[in-house]
Simulated scan of single mutants.
Amino acid sequence: MPRNDDRKFQAVTAFQRRILNPVMRRIPFQTALETTGRTSGLPRRTPVGGRRVGDSFWLVSEHGERSQYIRNIRANSRVRVRIGGRWHGGTAHVLPDDDAVARLRTLPRSNSAVVRLVGTDLLTVRVDLED
């Protein structure tokens, strides 16, 4: 029998993949993370919430290692982040030792609340920006 976390993960990812992400990707000022597909080699854009702090962009993945963009980062850490409508290149670092719940307290409240609500395995990511 599937665990509650498995059911939650399946329901949330289905909603995000089919409804939420296609709409959010089209909003020009929505923050987005662009990774390279580990199998296809094609750019993959995911709407994210997070915050720029100096030359870094911080975010928390709600499904940790199960997130496709985390798997893509593990295969190729070169990414781009759209912040305020402008793309920035950078290198992503998955930080399993960071306290993701504490990190969410430093990020935008509305997104952090949703991540805590729907998340099944929180994982911090830092992107070191180049420009």
Rank of each mutant, 00 (worst) to 15 (best):
R66T: 05
V48E: 04
R71H: 09
H63A: 15
E62Q: 13
I73V: 14
I73G: 13
H63M: 12
R51Q: 09
S56E: 14
I70T: 05
V53Y: 01
R80K: 15
H63Y: 13
R66Y: 07
G84M: 05
D55Y: 01
V79E: 08
I73C: 11
L59S: 09
N76M: 12
E65Y: 06
G64L: 09
G54F: 15
N72I: 00
L59P: 06
R66Q: 15
R66C: 09
R71Y: 08
S61W: 07
Y69G: 05
R66F: 06
S77L: 04
W87L: 03
V81T: 07
E65C: 07
H63K: 12
R82Y: 01
I73A: 10
W87G: 12
D55W: 08
S77T: 04
E62G: 15
G85Y: 13
S67C: 08
F57N: 07
R82W: 03
R80C: 14
S67L: 03
V53K: 01
G85A: 10
I70Y: 04
Q68F: 12
G84I: 05
G49H: 09
R52W: 00
N76P: 09
V79M: 12
Q68W: 09
G85N: 09
R82A: 13
R52Q: 04
I83S: 01
A75S: 13
D55M: 09
S67R: 05
G54T: 15
S77H: 10
F57G: 02
G54H: 11
A75Q: 04
R52N: 00
S67G: 01
R74L: 13
F57Y: 14
V81C: 05
W58D: 06
I73D: 11
Q68S: 11
A75F: 10
R52E: 00
A75M: 07
G64P: 12
S67T: 05
V79S: 10
R51W: 03
W87F: 07
V79C: 07
W87E: 13
G84C: 03
N72H: 03
R78Y: 00
G49W: 14
S67Q: 04
S61N: 02
V79T: 07
G50Q: 09
V60Q: 12
I83F: 00
N76S: 13
H63D: 14
S77W: 02
R78P: 06
G49E: 10
V60L: 08
